[in-house]
Computed example of a mutant assay.
Amino acid sequence: MCRLSPGAIENVHLEGKHSMFDPRDPYERYYWHYESRRPLSMAQIIALGSVDAKTAALIWLLLENGSSLTVAGPTDPQPGVGKTTTLNALLQFLPEGTSLAYMAGMYENFAFTNIPDIAPKTTYALCNEVSDHLPIYMWGRVARRYLTLPAKGYHIATSVHADTIDDVMRMYQRTLRVGPEDTRRLGLVVNIGLVGRLYPPRRRWFSTHFIQPNVNPDKPEAVEPLPLSLWNQVDDTFLYADQAILDDLANWIGISSQQFATEVTRRTEFLEEISQGSGLDQEEMFEAVAQFREQQP
C-alpha cells in the first residue's frame, strides 16, 4: 500500500489493500512523520550554517540524475535533529516530473509496483524512516524489500538512526541483510547531528557520502562509500572530495569531468545567492529552482 504524488507536488489517491494514509492531508503527513513542525528550504538550511552551498550543489546534481538518498541522524534520540526537515528540503532537487510513492511503514504491500502506468525510472519511494521504533516505520523484511526497490529501477529516499556512515552500512548490510549489489544502488547518505551546548542547538551535516555503484574487482563483496563532504569541527567548514572521486561521479552521471565541475559551480553560485540573509522559504525556492532549470544551457 502506498500513495503516489506526481511531480513531487500534487497528491493523487491510489487504491490499495489498506487506506489508512492519504498524503494529500497535511495532518496525516504530519502524523505519519512525513512533515516536520518547522519545515525549511535548502536555502534556509544553508543560511543557518548547517551545510554549505557546495555540498548542497553536489547533492542536487546527483539527485537530479536519479540518486537514491538516506538521511541519517543520531542513535541517541535527540528531538529536533532535523532528519525529516532535511529529507523534505532535498526533495526539491529531484528531477522534474518525479513521482513520490509514500510508504505506509510496516503496513506497506508495495502494490504500486504492479500498477502499469507508474514508471520506475521517474518514481521515488519515500519512507519516513527505516527503524523498529514504530509501526509507521519500516523494519525487517518490509524494509529489506523497500531497500531493494532500486534493483527494479525505482529510487528511494528515507531516513535512519545512525551516527556515522559505518553505522548506516552496518544497519543495511548486517542487520537488515541487504546484499552488496543492492546496497551499491542506495546512492547518497547524509549524516547530520547537533553540535555545541548552546540553545537553540546548532545543526551540522557531519558527512555526505555516495555509495560506489561499481564493483571493486579486488574486493568484489566490498561496499565502498565515497566521501563527498566532511564537516571540519575545528573551523566549522566543509572538506570536499578529491578529483578522482569527482571524476567517478561525472562518469556515473554520464558527463565529462569539466561539465560536472561547471554544473556544480552553477548550482553553488545559485544556492549562495538565494541563501543570503535568512534564505528563500520553501515556496520561493521552488519557484527559484524552476527558473534556474529554465535557464539551463
Rank of each mutant, 00 (worst) to 15 (best):
P6G: 03
K83S: 02
C2L: 06
A250Y: 13
S19P: 14
D52F: 03
D242N: 15
L194D: 11
I245L: 05
P39R: 00
T70P: 03
A43I: 13
L186A: 03
L186V: 04
Q259G: 12
V168R: 14
L246W: 12
P150N: 12
Y102D: 02
L87Y: 01
E181C: 11
D236E: 12
R177Q: 12
K219N: 12
Y27V: 03
R203I: 06
L58P: 02
M106S: 07
F270N: 14
M1W: 04
Y154W: 04
K54D: 08
D166L: 12
N109S: 06
S19M: 11
V189P: 00
G279M: 08
R3Q: 15
S19E: 13
P39N: 00
L14V: 11
L239H: 00
D247G: 11
P180N: 11
A241Y: 11
E294Q: 03
G277I: 07
Q173H: 14
S256T: 15
P120G: 01
L87A: 12
L90C: 02
L100S: 07
D166H: 15
Q92I: 00
I255R: 10
R293S: 05
I245C: 04
S5G: 13
I274S: 01
A8S: 13
E10L: 02
R38I: 02
R197C: 09
G80V: 04
P220S: 00
V160C: 11
I245Y: 09
F110M: 09
P39G: 04
R293M: 03
V81L: 02
N128P: 15
A288R: 01
L87W: 01
Y172G: 08
A261H: 15
